Simulated assay, not measured.
Amino acid sequence: MGAPAASAPAPSRSLTWQRWLLWAVLIGFAAFFLLPLYVMVVTSIKSMDEIRGGSLLALPHAVDFAAFGKAWSTACTGADCNGLQPFFWNSVMIVVPAVLVSTALGGINGYVLSKWKFKGSETMFALLLFGVFMPLQVILLPMSQVLGWLGIASSVWGLILVHLLCGLPGTTLFFRNYYAALPDELIKAAMLDGASFWRIFTRIVLPLSTPIIVVCLIWQFTQIWNDFLFGVVFSGADSKPVTVGLNNLANTTSSVKEYNVDMAAALIAGLPTLLVYVIAGKYFVRGLTAGAVKG
């Protein structure tokens, strides 16, 4: 008979306490970062009488969604009292084409700069990379002049162009570093079979690009939807995005400050990006770890 198998060592008491301590620290940090969101939610579903007479952290005695309706359709944002609704749809009209076009062009750029290198391609990539880290305030004046020359200043089309151009360096960086990890043999084999530039891209490279496409879509959507600087500088009276509308609503003076309406408006403005990360957050992480920031 063989020697009896050694029994598994008992778990260490110190390790158990370390785990408890780790969980306590993580829960504490989570509570700290989620506390503002909790305050926003509970304040938005309270009446003003309850807000004045109760605690900031107390749960509402009766749930009231009237603040959301007012924030959406009747709250004043300066002289206009149509709520956040027109600003919200302006943001949708800006975000959708800017995200799709900048992601598509970034994919083509990354494909060219990683698999079809030409003389000066590294210099061109370095110049594009400079655009990722360049302060946005630097381009405000020259971009205003360009939009004026094109005749699209203070319009939705102008904001689309601005976000497209500013997002292109980032999407190019993501795609270029992702495609650099793809085997060159795939491209060479397709070229030997007579496949063209676009056929290789659409039939071979693009089907392998789902993780990085999701990363770029989420990244661009978040950046453009949450942008305030370009929205306040390059927009006109009828093209202001939701971030500018939220700022105007919160800063509009009235006889009574309605904190529930302000909090409801903030939740409406932040809801799209929150939903994107809740629904597709795991794909964002997978895309990054699949090579989006490697190079």
Rank of each mutant, 00 (worst) to 15 (best):
2 G>D: 10
9 P>D: 07
13 R>G: 00
16 T>D: 04
17 W>P: 00
21 L>W: 15
28 G>R: 13
28 G>M: 03
36 P>Y: 03
36 P>G: 00
38 Y>W: 13
43 T>C: 04
47 S>K: 14
48 M>E: 14
49 D>K: 15
50 E>H: 10
54 G>T: 12
57 L>K: 13
61 H>R: 15
62 A>R: 15
63 V>R: 15
63 V>Q: 11
68 F>E: 05
69 G>C: 02
69 G>Q: 09
70 K>C: 00
74 T>S: 13
85 Q>N: 05
86 P>C: 00
96 V>I: 15
105 L>Y: 09
106 G>Y: 07
108 I>A: 04
118 F>D: 07
123 T>H: 08
127 L>W: 11
133 F>M: 14
136 L>I: 11
138 V>A: 13
139 I>Y: 12
141 L>Y: 06
146 V>S: 11
147 L>C: 04
149 W>H: 01
153 A>P: 01
155 S>E: 01
168 L>E: 01
168 L>V: 01
168 L>R: 03
179 Y>E: 03
181 A>S: 14
182 L>H: 09
184 D>Q: 11
186 L>V: 06
189 A>I: 08
190 A>H: 06
198 W>A: 06
204 I>N: 08
208 L>W: 09
213 I>C: 05
215 V>H: 07
216 C>Y: 12
217 L>R: 10
219 W>R: 12
224 I>K: 07
230 F>E: 05
240 K>N: 05
242 V>A: 01
245 G>M: 04
245 G>D: 05
250 A>E: 08
259 Y>A: 00
266 A>Y: 11
267 L>F: 10
270 G>C: 08
276 V>H: 12
281 G>R: 09
281 G>W: 07
284 F>Y: 15
287 G>E: 08
288 L>Q: 06
290 A>D: 05
291 G>Y: 02
292 A>T: 07
